[in-house]
């Protein structure tokens, strides 16, 4: 075991641990639908973005990082807005298909919103036509899902705060 942490914990790490604790009692022992959604999301996030997505990446020097699990890609602050947009569109295509289960649909919506949250949090860009109010509500609901991947919870909470600030500024 390594007694020396590789880096100091940040607030988001604390939030992830809290989410693990919160979800463990509900998703792990909860409704079958929640367990399925948890598994579907974990499966989706553990795989790298499919190679065919890369083919559509614009040649502007900001391609998708190859080979990394989607979980890392979606929470990476260096992901370009263009790449976040590609992920969002590809995942949208996926959840518009009618032959998938509810769990897969829920997992896809979570990843779709995570791509939007990434662009909003790290680049201040809204890559969705939904209003800040709608997005803020969706991010808040995602962060509260007992099956939500703990890695994504801080991202959703930060995105919700960005939306709140934008709405306050408008008001």
């Amino acid at each position: 075991m390594n007694p020396e942490p590789r880096r100091r914990p940040v607030g988001e790490d604390i939030a992830k641990l809290l989410a693990i604790g919160r979800n463990a009692e509900t998703a792990a022992g909860g409704e079958p639908g929640e367990r399925e959604a948890e598994r579907a999301l974990s499966g989706l996030l553990s795989s790298p973005p499919p190679a065919e997505w890369l083919e559509t990446a614009p040649l502007d020097g900001h391609p998708l990082p190859p080979g990394r699990p989607l979980r890392e890609v979606l929470t990476d602050g260096s992901l370009s807005v263009a790449a976040a947009r590609i992920i969002k569109e590809e995942i949208k295509r996926r959840f518009r298909s009618h032959d998938e289960t509810k769990a897969v649909h829920d997992a896809s919506v979570a990843a779709y919103l995570a791509a939007i949250a990434n662009a909003l949090v790290f680049h201040g860009e809204k890559i969705s036509s939904y209003s800040y109010r709608d997005l803020g509500g969706a991010f808040a609901r995602m962060a509260e899902k007992p099956w939500m991947e703990p890695e994504l919870v801080p991202l959703f909470l930060r995105a919700r705060d960005v939306c709140k600030n934008k709405m306050n500024r408008k008001a």
């Binding site: 607030g11 988001e12 604390i14 939030a15 809290l18 989410a19 919160r22 962060a143 919870v153 801080p154 909470l157 930060r158 919700r160 705060d161």
Partner: peptide, 9 residues
Amino acid sequence: LMAAVSKPG
């Protein structure tokens, strides 16, 4: 608490 500590920095 999750919301309070999720802020960057």
